[in-house]
Each structure stands twice: as C-alpha cells, then as structure tokens.
Design a protein around this nucleic acid. Structure first.
Length: 279
DNA sequence: CGTAGCACCTGTCAGC
DNA sequence: TGCTGACAGGTGCTAC
C-alpha cells in the first residue's frame, strides 16, 4: 500500500538491517520490472556498503559507498520482506519474488511485486536532484519547504479538480489516491472543486490536514508494527482506519452526519467522499 | 504550457 | 465451476 506513509514505514523497517551493512550479493530473478534493471546490477551491488537509507517522495534511496544510489519504488504492489531469523531461514522464492538483497549483517531483504510497476535502479549520487525520476518532484509534505503559501501558489489559476492536482507529484510529493481522499474529507473540501477556486482558509485547512493525515498514518505504522514489520517480516502494511477511502455506500463517520460515502471517477481513478461534509 | 487518456502488469472479486 | 468485466495503493509517455 505504498503511499508516503507506507514507504516511510518500509524505509524505517529496512534501516536496522541495511544501513551501515555491506551487500554480500544480490539475487535478480528477471530482467526488468517497470523498466529494465540497470546494466550489471548484480555486479555493481556486490560488496557495496549502504551508508545511508532515506526516502524521497515514494522512493527509497540507498546511498552506497562508491557514489551510486540504489533507487527503489514499490509501484502499486511492491513489498519488502526481511528474513533474519536463522532458525526460520529464507523461504524458497515464490512467483513474484524478483530480487533478494543478501546482507552481510545476516538479513535477506526480499522485493516482491506481482504487478511489476515497481522500479529498482542505480543512479549517481550527484544526480539525485536531477535524475529524470526525481527531478521536478515537489516538496516533502512533512518538511519545512511545504506550507500553505506553497500549496496556494501551486494550485493558483489551475483548472483541474483539486483531487487530481493533489495526485500530481510536482505539486507536493508522496500523496496517493488514499491520502488525497482522506485529506480532502478531513478538510471538508469537495474533490471536484477546481483548484483555482479554493479560498485561502480552505487552502490552509487542506495544508494542515495533508500533514496531519500523513503524520497519523506514519505514527500508526510505527505503533502497530513492532520494528515496523509483521511477524512474517513483511514491512509497511498495518491496520488503517480510513474515513472515506474504500467505504462507498457506508455511512459517513462524521458526528451527526447521515450521509453515505460516495464514489466518483476522476482522471480514471476512484474518489471517495462525503457529499454532505465536503463542500 | 496544461490537461486528459492510455499504457504498463497481475490478481481478486462480483455477477452471471 | 468457469467465464467476463471491473477494479486495484503509481507514474511516464503521448496526443490534443
């Protein structure tokens, strides 16, 4: 379920077994995911120490000791699972287990992705800001460079519905379909409102709720998953409680609201909303 | 330039 | 049970 909070949770879960450790070797079981793996991926990873593991937007970045950066995107269905219990061992790879990172620290980190919309590649450290996949990505929503004024400037005069705009990673990084729906519900803004028509107080509410919904989700991941992982070692999946997402036809959770959650399709993607709470 | 739509893949579920 | 169609947490590319 990879939007920003899930990628953050996965990154935090991987850090104790990857950061500061040397990659003994990588097992690559197919030539491509969404894109081909980089030339000689296995050879270029072997023996490299991962100096630092961080997240930018929905990408996991592993800074290697030779100036390369391992870039991982989970796409729609990508998952990471840690195997570091010597008693249990490492299960035989299943159909969609495409890559294993075998760490000298003793852990095996397995990348699984049925739909293969994920990305694994290597870039140079000095390309992190300019590489095609990262250039143009907007501010981190939880960082200092994102605020109501930045959001206001980004949506000013834009003729797209606010829902569609918020999915655009150039405006703000890391929001996906779930948290856009949730943030709009929490701020009481109808998803089909045109971005340029939002009033200042609405933009400020939206800004606050974007931050809060993401912070809540990250906190939920940290508190409901011991070491950010489930008993089977899988990272980033935890019990969410969404107010509108996936709740079409169910009653609105707002106090005193008698309405039923609706669903519309915008830019080809489902939007869940309360027709009464969101104006 | 801004915007919309398609493409990439596989799995799951509802309905017949 | 088997088939079909709709749908799924993302994003790059192309065409208007």
């Amino acid at each position: 379920m990879p939007e920003l909070p899930e990628v953050e949770t996965v990154t935090r879960g991987l850090t104790p077994v990857m950061e500061g450790f040397v990659v003994d070797h990588v097992v690559q079981r197919r030539p491509n995911l969404r894109f081909p793996f980089p030339e000689n991926f296995v050879g270029r990873m072997a023996g490299r120490r991962i100096n630092q593991l961080t997240r930018r937007a929905k990408y996991i970045l592993g800074y290697l000791d030779d100036g390369q950066v391992l870039l991982v995107h989970l796409g729609m269905s990508g998952r990471m699972t840690i195997f570091d219990n010597p008693v249990v061992g490492v299960p035989a790879p299943a159909k969609h287990d495409h890559v294993d990172f075998v760490m000298q620290g003793g852990a095996v980190v397995r990348f699984t992705d049925p739909r293969r919309f994920g990305v694994i590649t290597l870039i140079a450290a000095n390309e992190v800001a300019t590489h095609k996949m990262l250039a143009g990505i907007g501010p981190e929503p939880l960082g200092n460079s994102f605020n109501a004024a930045v959001l206001a400037a980004g949506i000013a005069r834009r003729a797209s519905p606010i829902k569609t705009m918020l999915l655009d990673q150039r405006l703000v990084a890391g929001l996906g379909n779930i948290y856009v729906c949730e943030a709009l519900f929490r701020s009481g803004i109808a998803p089909d409102r045109l971005a340029k028509d939002l009033k200042q107080d609405e933009i400020e509410r939206l800004y606050r709720e974007i931050r809060l919904v993401l912070e809540d989700a990250i906190a939920a991941g940290g508190s409901s998953l011991k070491d950010h992982r489930q008993a089977n070692g899988e990272l980033g999946y935890f019990q969410h409680s969404f107010r509108v997402y996936g709740r079409e036809g169910e009653s609105c959770t707002a106090d005193g609201c008698e309405s039923v959650v609706g669903r519309i399709v915008q830019a080809g993607r489902s939007t869940f909303f309360c027709p009464t709470c969101q104006k």
